[in-house]
Amino acid sequence: MRVLVVSTPVGWLGSGLGGGVELTAASLVAGLLQRGHAVTVLAGAPSQLPAGCDAARLWCEGGVSQPSWQHCGREAAVQIPAEALLGHLWRRALAEQAGFDVLINLGYDWLPLWLTPHTSTPLAHLVSMGSVSTAMDAVIAEIARSHPQHLAFHTASQASDFDLAGAPRLVGNGFDLDRYQFQPNADAVLGWAGRIAPEKGLEDAAAVAARLQRPLWIWGVREDEAYARWVEASVPTGTLEWRGFLPTERLQQELGRCAVLLNTPKWNEAYGNVVVEAMACGVPVATYARGGPGELVQEGVNGCLAPPEDREALAAAVERAWQIPRHQPRAWAECHCSRSAFAERIEDWLNAVLAEPPCEGT
């Protein structure tokens, strides 16, 4: 297949602003290339393709980054700023669509979903978030009725947020596990990784680390500086160690030194990439039983679970997870989250998209 992958307009590839979509994009592109498909990536300038994606073409467009739906109210209207990167990406995609067999949208945005029945080349959407907006819920439900094969989700927990016409297409996610070194021994530290923003719940991880009197290493873009300072002030000095936003090679080296990774989302996380990244290094995970991470973590196998917002239970989950043999999380990641398996699931999905008959009037 000739595939055009349209990235998130929230940030450029390599910036970290796109969150887990950036890692998903890298795995999807590299995996499809390995399976013999011709892939072009359309993303915001100054994007760069990560390792494993060198054979793909990269087209970059300028423009104003799109505000994330995570930071808008549930009843907020659809926003498209002047000179929006979102508009520039999809103007280019529409102009170039005749050169491709299928278009893949990785952005969680109203415009490309609305475009689905209006393109001449099939347009498929890998939905990257759970429900955060009435407007997005409505357009996803509309496409689920008119073009059900054109939607895919990472997990059943995520898909359950939406009003779908039938059983969801679940594709999980994939990782180049060769880039993650198994580390059989750990330092007496806890880890946390993600965008530093309120919906990620860092304050809960900080409180648990303080309760257990263990240092907490933190990786990620400080998206909300005031929030980061508030979290730091909420625990004793020295509890938190800010490690920055790191490329995969450096992140996995540091992450693998942790005894346990804490994952504390305040919302229905679609998947939980960092959960699998930790497991790939041999690090068990303590997380809330919510969303994708709650689906990925198997109690006593690769981590431990706690009821959402229950810090005391999360602290107990950390202590249980600390006892899990580190080969178990790595083995689970190898079995369920390889890039090759993800690419095969994506290919099966795209074949179903291409086989879906057009709806009347489209």
Results as ranks from 00 to 15, higher is better:
20 G>E: 11
218 I>K: 00
353 V>T: 08
268 N>A: 11
101 D>S: 05
291 G>F: 02
338 S>V: 04
345 R>F: 04
231 V>G: 15
99 G>M: 05
107 G>M: 03
327 H>Y: 02
105 N>H: 07
172 G>P: 14
347 E>S: 13
281 C>I: 06
329 P>I: 00
295 E>T: 01
332 W>I: 04
191 G>I: 02
114 W>K: 09
118 H>L: 14
300 G>F: 00
248 T>E: 14
318 V>Q: 09
165 A>G: 15
68 S>A: 14
359 C>K: 11
102 V>I: 05
280 A>K: 05
1 M>A: 13
75 E>T: 09
290 R>D: 06
349 W>I: 11
82 A>Y: 06
24 T>C: 14
272 G>M: 07
110 W>E: 15
338 S>Y: 02
345 R>T: 12
316 A>C: 06
142 E>W: 04
278 A>D: 08
336 H>R: 12
259 A>E: 03
354 L>Q: 15
270 A>N: 11
238 G>Y: 04
254 E>I: 04
257 R>M: 11
163 D>Y: 02
332 W>L: 12
137 D>A: 11
10 V>A: 14
72 C>P: 03
87 G>K: 02
159 A>V: 07
56 A>Q: 03
135 A>Q: 14
262 L>I: 06
65 S>A: 12
73 G>N: 10
240 L>W: 01
249 E>Y: 05
339 R>W: 02
183 Q>N: 10
88 H>S: 15
327 H>Q: 10
53 C>M: 07
348 D>S: 14
237 T>A: 15
178 D>E: 14
332 W>Y: 14
284 P>G: 08
33 L>C: 08
60 C>K: 12
270 A>L: 13
324 I>Y: 00
337 C>T: 06
105 N>W: 07
47 S>Y: 05
257 R>A: 14
249 E>W: 03
125 H>A: 10
252 Q>H: 09
269 E>W: 05
355 A>Q: 12
10 V>L: 11
